[in-house]
């Protein structure tokens, strides 16, 4: 096994494959494109809200396996929860990558990214979908 292989384990591959299940949401309350300007990857996130609850989350992912896997984690964890859960997810993702703090609760799926902690140049890949969601929800602040 080379230094890079630990990233591409079965858990990450399985998550990345699930990103294909994310559909588009035509009547989304917010939408945001997040770009990784270094590589050109783009995540389009669409969120449908019901009050403060996340009714559905979807969009389009054009990115590497880590971007896809992170988007799948969000898609799996957020629907049906209060929007505050996404803020918690973003914080847990950043903590996991920066110091290896294990993710808990709704975001245990993030622990699949534990091997990525040692690959700092790929942290932005994992965070891209979260940043898209963060910006998307910021667009709705005070409007619902």
């Amino acid at each position: 096994m080379s230094a890079a292989d630990d990233i591409y384990d079965a858990a990450i591959k399985d998550l990345a494959a699930r990103a294909r299940n994310m559909g588009r949401i035509e009547d989304a309350d917010c939408s945001h494109d997040a770009d990784n300007f270094l590589c050109g990857d783009r995540v389009t996130v669409e969120v449908a809200l019901n009050g403060d609850a996340i009714e559905n989350i979807g969009g389009k992912v054009r990115g590497c396996m880590l971007v896809q896997a992170a988007a799948a984690v969000i898609h799996g964890a957020a629907p049906g929860k209060d929007r505050a859960v996404l803020t918690d997810g973003i914080a847990q993702a950043r903590a996991l990558l920066s110091d290896g703090t294990p993710a808990t609760g709704d975001w245990e799926g993030l622990n699949a990214f534990t091997p990525v902690q040692g690959h700092k140049h790929r942290h932005d890949c994992v965070l891209l979908p979260f940043e898209a969601v963060e910006a998307c929800l910021a667009d709705t602040d005070g409007t619902d």
Binding site: S2, A4, D5, L38, C39, G40, G63, C64, R122
Partner: peptide, 28 residues
Amino acid sequence: AHPHDICEVMGGEGVALRGGHHCAQPLM
């Protein structure tokens, strides 16, 4: 397979490649 994943694995094998749009997005 995405070019970044390809470069990550190839890089781990000691082969330096570049993945991305190569600053030529209109060509992409």
